[in-house]
Amino acid sequence: MKIIVPIKQVPETAAVKMDEKTGTMVREGVEAIINPLDLYGLELAIELREKFGGEVTALSMGPPKAETALREAMAMGCDRGVLLSDKAFAGADTWATSYTLATAIGKLGEFDLIICGERATDGDTGQVGPAIASFLGLPVATYISKFEERREGAVRVHRLVEDGYEVLDVRLPCVLTVVKEVSNPRLPTLGGKIKARQSEIPVWTAASIGADPEKLGLKGSPTRVVKIHKPKVSRQCTKMAASDEASADKAVEALVEFLDKRDLI
């Protein structure tokens, strides 16, 4: 199976700090990692290659330093990495991002599967996977929690929905977006790291993928961020200590009263 895994380099969420004054993110000193939800997609892709043969390509759009994310993906076991980096890509919303990724995927040659993480932990939209499918005219199945089997010209997968899961047959080639349950990401091996370090990672630009400049970056993005602000912390926590039986009784009574007042029990 030939599999493509689009990945994103994101700031480590646990380390994100907010500038109290400006309400913006402090990026300095924050480690950049592979979007944690992409790891499940990478792992599934590598497992499928181990089972059925083929090759796994990790693809990322980002600044030059996003190359490290691709090397990490290769250290896990991806066969190759391709970086999409160009000033023209900057400021892209999900529409322009998907357009760029889809155009690059068109240059990668034949493939069976595109596997995406459900969403990225920074932008948190979950829109890029389905949008890539739309640009490429492919079927898409989101929230995949299990890969059951490969069938004739299709894959059988489980899709997690609100009240259960759907068992679906999705015709190949297609796009899957996966959730955590789909796999247990492996750690990079030493051999993998060495191989990753020695590999060439080609950098593709707007010109090399033959993209329409009108559809790239900020220029190609229908949406605009007009304001970033800090959520107002309007919550006034009523905190009660329950250190002994009497205070526990009192705290529980106060909680019940609190919920009652808000019509929550």
Partner: peptide
């Protein structure tokens, strides 16, 4: 969350999630 991004691309619309 699946249909809207799939559709937004086809009608060239801006889409904001969540």
């Amino acid at each position: 969350r699946t249909l809207m991004p799939f559709l937004a691309v086809q009608v060239n619309a801006g889409l904001t999630a969540d």
